[in-house]
């Protein structure tokens, strides 16, 4: 637990370093899902940094690809990519572009960026796992604004129809999207009830509390015959006081002063 919290803090710090160095990026939605990513890569998922394409590995699709900084920093913390490469984030000569590229970055299971497609892709991986009788699990992190995309609900229907109990969908429910509060821009609530009515095993948690995340993954693994959706209540910008719950921090980099304050808060 303490180890996971320490790693999450480290990853948050690296995310701020990366976005500050790049002078652009998406801090808000990256910071909100870091506790989930940390728990996945340091406790839940079976992955091997020496064999990133191992066919038996668990898989993660970051459907909200704009939170790439969080994924890259987590992969670096795990050892898939070199930490010194993180500062090339969003640089034209770096493989670490604004949205993840599976062909260039070890440990990235799917290229994402255009919202709404990740859950369908996760379904495909889960279906293949069922066909080949492999016991790997597939995780898919979506944004709460992202689920306004209609394809998410096509995929929700499919996951349930094909009884993909090796699939775990996670909604990073930070309540904000670019234009403001999700309930005011285009209200997707009640999110849990929607997934429930689509046939999912639904678990509501605080997505910034590692013990709750661990517990939810545990429960998801025991659910049989249906997919799980974890609705993770999170704070956009989590860990940096002035970024927390501010839609304005969806897609902008901190100034020098803001950067220094943020690093201080995370130290």
């Amino acid at each position: 637990m303490e180890d996971l919290q320490k790693r999450a803090l480290n990853i948050r710090k690296n995310v701020i370093e990366m976005i500050y160095a790049a002078s652009s990026g998406h801090p808000g939605g990256a910071l909100s899902c870091i506790d989930i990513l940390t728990t996945l890569y340091f406790s839940e998922m079976n992955v091997d940094i020496n064999n990133p394409k191992d066919e038996n590995r668990d898989r993660l699709i970051l459907s909200k690809g704009h939170a790439s900084a969080a994924l890259y920093a987590t992969l670096a913390e795990k050892g898939f990519i070199a930490k010194e490469d993180l500062l090339g984030f969003r640089n034209i000569n770096s493989t670490l572009q604004g949205h993840p590229d599976m062909k260039k970055i070890p440990g990235v299971d799917m290229s994402t960026g255009s919202l709404g497609q990740g859950l369908s892709i996760a379904n495909g991986m889960a279906l293949a796992g069922k066909m080949d009788k492999k016991d790997y699990r597939v995780y898919c992190i979506m944004g709460d604004g992202e689920i306004e995309e209609g394809q998410i609900w096509e995929a929700a229907m499919s996951a349930s129809h094909y009884k993909l109990d090796n699939l775990c969908a996670i909604v990073d429910n930070n309540n904000l999207q670019i234009d403001g509060k999700i309930t005011e821009v285009m209200n997707p609530t009640p999110i849990d009830e929607k997934f429930k009515s689509f046939g999912f095993n639904v678990i509501n948690i605080n997505g910034n509390e590692i013990d709750e995340i661990l517990n939810a993954f545990e429960k998801a693994r025991t659910a049989k015959g249906r997919p799980t959706a974890i609705i993770a209540q999170t704070i956009k910008g989590k860990g940096v006081s002035f970024m927390e719950n501010q839609a304005g921090w969806h897609g902008k980099a901190p100034s020098k002063e803001e950067y220094e304050t943020a690093i201080q808060e995370l130290s």
Binding site: E55, S120, L127, Q151, E154
Partner: peptide, 21 residues
Amino acid sequence: FDMGIAEQDMISTAAGLSTCG
């Protein structure tokens, strides 16, 4: 796999399947 009347889901699901061989 019949994906129902959901072409976007179908194409992305195919993409997922292809990553698993």
